[in-house]
Simulated scan of single mutants.
Amino acid sequence: MLPTASTHRASPGHLHTQKWRGRIGLAMVAALSVLAGMTDAIGFMASGDFVSFMSGNTTRLAVAISDGDMSLTLRLMILVATFIVGNALGVVIGRLGGRRALPLLLCIATLLCGAAAWPSEVQLPALLAAIIAMGMLNAAVEEVNGLAVGLTYVTGALSRFGRGLGRWIMGERRNGWRVQLVPWSGMFIGAILGAVLEHHLGLKALYASGLLAALIGLVSLKIPRRWQLGYMPR
């Protein structure tokens, strides 16, 4: 018997599941973006260097090169390279952990707490640990219901939101562009929290980031495995 047109339509149950998968995924994005913003603000205020905003460090690197400041040039090159290493490690740990968020987030929590415990007289090792953690964070969620999301950078999110707004003004009614404000809002709120914590605790405020990473990891145990497989990089 040939399939009827109704056979190809998504069932109400499937649509309900997809809706909840999207909502849970966006909640995860929001929480992880808060973590990224908090950690970046703490690192920046404590050391003057970004730990997740590599666009900023790249611009500073270019300026340092033009000024002939070799010490700062070398430092920034190490920071950018460390972030790349963190991204690679995030994929590796994500794969070894069965593409579950918990093992990855526990590794991130360990790195952040280790950075907080490092003696404040020598900040660079702590800074590098935090940067590796933020690089790894990008492997926790890559897309939600087919929509690409970024966790430790928001320029892409704002750009996708702006392009979606332009299409909406021109009469197009595509879905998904509004959710790009979720990672931006999360990172903004997290940065405010991180700045407040750094004022009181200095680099030790990274303990709060580590605890938040572990908490998000534990909460992720409630997310169905098949949904996590859709969130994390393949």
Rank of each mutant, 00 (worst) to 15 (best):
residue 124 L to P: 08
residue 60 R to Y: 09
residue 206 L to A: 03
residue 123 Q to L: 15
residue 223 I to G: 00
residue 79 L to D: 08
residue 82 T to C: 13
residue 234 R to D: 13
residue 131 I to T: 15
residue 34 V to Q: 00
residue 121 E to W: 12
residue 67 D to T: 11
residue 34 V to T: 09
residue 25 G to R: 03
residue 197 L to K: 00
residue 132 I to S: 07
residue 199 H to A: 12
residue 199 H to S: 12
residue 160 R to S: 10
residue 67 D to F: 11
residue 94 G to Q: 04
residue 68 G to A: 13
residue 191 A to W: 00
residue 76 L to K: 05
residue 103 P to D: 06
residue 174 R to G: 14
residue 40 D to I: 10
residue 41 A to Y: 06
residue 189 I to F: 02
residue 77 M to Y: 07
residue 191 A to V: 02
residue 114 G to W: 10
residue 228 Q to E: 10
residue 63 V to C: 10
residue 24 I to L: 14
residue 81 A to R: 08
residue 67 D to I: 09
residue 115 A to E: 04
residue 58 T to M: 14
residue 208 A to E: 02
residue 181 L to E: 05
residue 184 W to Q: 06
residue 113 C to A: 12
residue 92 V to H: 06
residue 65 I to D: 08
residue 133 A to W: 05
residue 210 G to C: 00
residue 54 M to K: 12
residue 230 G to A: 04
residue 159 S to R: 15
residue 233 P to L: 03
residue 186 G to Q: 01
residue 166 G to A: 15
residue 220 S to L: 02
residue 49 D to A: 15
residue 136 M to L: 12
residue 30 A to L: 15
residue 111 L to S: 03
residue 120 S to H: 14
residue 35 L to T: 05
residue 58 T to P: 06
residue 175 N to C: 10
residue 171 G to E: 07
residue 228 Q to K: 02
residue 188 F to W: 11
residue 215 L to P: 02
residue 196 V to Y: 04
residue 121 E to Q: 14
residue 52 S to C: 11
residue 63 V to I: 15
residue 46 A to C: 14
residue 132 I to M: 12
residue 172 E to Q: 11
residue 37 G to V: 09
residue 128 L to V: 14
residue 53 F to N: 15
residue 11 S to Q: 01
residue 1 M to D: 12
residue 8 H to K: 07
residue 208 A to D: 00
residue 128 L to E: 10
residue 147 L to G: 08
residue 8 H to F: 15
residue 59 T to F: 13
residue 94 G to I: 03
residue 87 N to T: 15
residue 95 R to S: 11
residue 30 A to S: 13
residue 80 V to H: 08
residue 149 V to L: 13
residue 222 K to H: 07
residue 2 L to E: 14
residue 71 S to H: 14
residue 180 Q to C: 05
residue 15 L to E: 06
residue 94 G to Y: 06
residue 24 I to T: 13
residue 62 A to H: 11
residue 204 K to M: 09
residue 209 S to G: 06
residue 7 T to R: 09
residue 162 G to K: 03
residue 151 L to W: 12
residue 195 A to C: 02
residue 233 P to R: 04
residue 23 R to C: 05
residue 181 L to N: 07
residue 217 G to E: 01
residue 218 L to Q: 00
residue 110 T to K: 03
residue 230 G to M: 04
residue 20 W to F: 06
residue 103 P to I: 03
residue 32 L to G: 08
residue 80 V to Q: 08
residue 215 L to K: 00
residue 152 T to R: 03
residue 75 R to G: 03
residue 15 L to T: 04
residue 51 V to D: 07
residue 102 L to P: 01
